[in-house]
């Protein structure tokens, strides 16, 4: 059994790129650990902190060496409270304190040869971006890739440049965007993300779907995907719970006795169905 520590490593912020009024994309130097020790997988998270202020979990939004320079990774941080207020003010050259990665490491071989359906609502694109990047990096290993992204307004869309770059890959990845509401000038679709599943042209049989977004989205998307015929064990969701330690001790993230920080936060719907009060 590994011994654990909650001591973070100082990590230099290399770039701080505001996405809108409250979201900042950070390129961060990986913790100066033995390099192999910081090798996050899609769906994993780190604990990021500021001394004297506090610590919180954030999904790894881009993995070291996967569309990023080796030894760097990315976080997308939304300003919602005391800690994130100060984190989102960090400038390049300043330091955040990071430990991890934590969470379940999903075996990617299980997805190989399948089609992938990615559905991200709002901040949900932050973790799912790492999945899409991984899939595009090994494009030949998958069949069709569908990426559906929903946001409250066009301004709220995250990673706009990257979404455009994915779109430009045409048949490599089918990107569709939708916003709840928009002012004039938005040429795209308006509505909730589930409407992107109307007349779904992608492949359902044997495909894996990845969902991340606000809780209301889960229920509706799950219903639609199940109705389309997706297998429960191929529906992957990222859950959010308060996490104070990230290492299976503090108990805040428990669902039916399971510690999400270790066994999740990524779960298949088949796994979740067994857990009371999960979704």
């Amino acid at each position: 059994m590994p011994q654990v520590s909650m001591i973070p490593a100082p990590c230099r912020v290399l770039e701080a790129l505001p996405q809108n009024a409250h979201d900042v994309r950070f390129v961060v130097e990986a913790p100066p650990l033995p390099a192999a020790a910081f090798a996050p997988e899609p769906g994993q998270f780190v604990m990021a902190s500021l001394p004297g202020i506090g610590e919180a979990p954030f999904c790894v939004s881009a993995l070291p060496g996967e569309g990023t320079a080796p030894g760097t990774f990315e976080l997308l941080i939304r300003r919602t409270g005391r800690l994130t207020n100060l984190l989102t003010r960090l400038r390049p050259g300043e330091t955040m304190y990071v430990r991890g990665p934590y969470g379940r490491r999903v075996d990617w071989e299980r997805f190989e040869g399948a089609s992938l359906i990615v559905m991200a609502g709002g901040l949900g694109l932050a973790p799912l971006r790492a999945f899409v990047r991984r899939a595009l990096l090994r494009r030949d290993a998958f069949r069709r890739i569908d990426v559906m992204v929903g946001a409250r307004s066009p301004d709220e869309l995250l990673f706009k440049d990257e979404l455009a770059a994915w779109k430009a890959r045409r048949d490599d990845v089918h990107v569709r965007l939708i916003v709840d509401a928009a002012r004039e000038g938005w040429g795209g679709r308006i509505g909730v993300i589930t409407t992107l599943l109307d007349n779904f042209e992608g492949e359902v049989d044997g495909s894996h779907a990845f969902l991340c977004g606000p809780p209301v989205m889960y229920r509706h998307c799950l219903k639609r995907l199940l109705a389309l015929g997706l297998y429960e064990g191929h529906l992957w969701l990222t859950l959010e719970r308060r996490m104070r330690c990230g290492i299976g001790l503090c108990g805040n993230c428990q669902v039916s006795g399971h510690y999400l920080c270790q066994e999740g936060p990524l779960f298949s719907y088949r796994e979740l169905r067994q857990l009371r009060e999960a979704v």
Binding site: G52, I53, R244, N252
Partner: peptide
């Protein structure tokens, strides 16, 4: 019971800070 919360406290000048855990519960 084993659940805990984690918190920070720091001096105003930022020269030093502590991170502690304290009991909480479901």
């Amino acid at each position: 019971c084993t659940c805990f919360d984690v918190g920070d406290e720091g001096t105003l000048d930022g020269a030093a800070a502590v991170r502690f855990r304290r009991w909480t519960g479901c």
